Simulated scan of single mutants.
Amino acid sequence: MTAAEVKALQAQDALGSYTGYGTARFGMDEDAFRAAWRADLKGAVDPAGDCSLLQRPWDNALADFDFMFEHGRFVRYDVGTPREIAPGGGKVGMSVAQIRALYGRGLQVLPHKYQQNEQYLRIADGKGDVLIFETDTAGKVSRWRVGVPPQIDNEDGCL
């Protein structure tokens, strides 16, 4: 990563938010997203495709972090590492009780689509954007994502 890319990333005040990531906002097309991001990304977006993913070059796997695009528009980002902090302070490794303490009454608990004894913890910001934490069988956050409906509620991401 170049010094200019590092500086551009450091200039993004609040990285994870309900409306996007850094200066990139949900609804942007790939060109606007890349202009807002101002650093290299792995992958390409198919403007006509149902789902495309971009990845930061320093993330080793899509499971660590990805930006999701549908029909060429930025709609969601997924996080699977404790290095990132969700809007409101949640992160991978926290317990359900810790998430409840942070997000309070707005937290909706839903059963996991595929795994028994795992849950989705869903928080809507009241403006259409949503944060979802996934828990493991021990009741700890294993992943989280932020985006817009209906894409945010697709448990399978891009398949």
Rank of each mutant, 00 (worst) to 15 (best):
K113L: 11
Q108V: 11
Q115F: 13
Q119T: 08
F67L: 14
L107C: 04
D50G: 13
R56I: 15
P87I: 07
D125H: 08
F65N: 02
Q116R: 06
F65Q: 03
M94E: 05
A86K: 00
D50H: 11
G49A: 14
G106Q: 10
V75M: 11
G90A: 07
G72P: 02
M68Q: 13
P82A: 12
I123N: 03
G89E: 06
E118A: 12
L107A: 05
A101L: 05
D66H: 14
I85K: 14
G88A: 09
M94N: 01
G49T: 06
F67G: 00
R56C: 05
H112T: 02
G90F: 02
G88Y: 05
Q98V: 07
G104V: 09
L53R: 11
R122V: 08
Q55M: 15
A86S: 13
Q116A: 12
G72L: 06
A48F: 09
L110T: 09
Y114V: 15
P111A: 06
P111T: 05
D78G: 14
G126S: 07
A124E: 08
H112R: 04
G88P: 05
D78L: 04
R105T: 15
A61S: 15
L110C: 05
F67I: 01
G106V: 07
C51V: 09
V79N: 00
K113A: 11
L121C: 09
Q55H: 08
I99T: 03
R76E: 12
F67D: 00
G126H: 06
